[in-house]
Design a binder for these strands. Structure first.
Lengths: 109, 109
DNA sequence: TTGACATATTGACAATTATCGATACAATCA
DNA sequence: TGATTGTATCGATAATTGTCAATATGTCAA
């Protein structure tokens, strides 16, 4: 349940996607909820496309309910990926970084 | 001396760039050193292009010496950006994350 | 000054990807 | 059943970006 650091970065490397992520933080939203919160600037198929990207990076949790699909940010995965980046690219600082016990910073795969 | 999270993610969102970053970790290398370590798969202009991207994201430190330019990873910046991502997108876990004192996780600018 | 070397820049091209409209699919409701 | 609603998928297009060859720029040495 781990992920390639490049795939992680690519998932974050878009303005619209980071805006969607802000809206999905600590909240479960349906696809249309997200479309609404974006103020109609982005169409539903595009939002679906972005959610798929986030799902592929395991950055969202998904719950199907009837004909609705609810999404929320996967905070564990985001924290783990950041931890992994620090371990890979900031090894001098990594020993001073403390993450929650249940966050695995090494590739588990 | 802070940076937009999207620009940070974009800087990391490429295989070649992350490979370059690995080589620049804890070591000062000239542009040609980097080209060499990539095994000749990537040409010098392309490497220069990637280094520029990393420099724009403040992810490398640069030292000019004669006709050589030496680069190394900016571990502080990388750690700070990761901290900022966690604060933005994993607020429930962020309180349990401890970073070195000199790392600023809030946008200073 | 001339030549050699290290790096950056430019222009072109190919690959990736964000976006949209149209449509398909699935679940609910009348 | 048929109509409606929520979401995903498809095909097309435009924008972004990674890559290269060629060249420019800047620095050092003879």
């Amino acid at each position: 349940m781990s992920i390639d650091p490049v795939l992680f970065a690519k998932a974050l490397a878009d303005d619209t996607r980071q805006e969607i992520m802000k809206h999905l933080c600590c909240v479960w939203l349906s696809v249309n909820d997200v479309v609404e919160r974006l103020g109609g600037r982005i169409n539903q198929p595009t939002v679906s496309h972005h959610l798929k990207k986030l799902e592929e990076a395991n950055l969202v949790l998904v719950r199907q309910e009837g004909r609705n699909r609810f999404y929320t940010l996967n905070q564990q995965q985001l924290t783990a990926c950041c931890g992994r980046l620090i371990h890979a690219f900031a090894p001098d600082l990594a020993p001073k970084v403390i993450l929650p016990d249940d966050i695995e910073t090494r590739r588990s795969e």
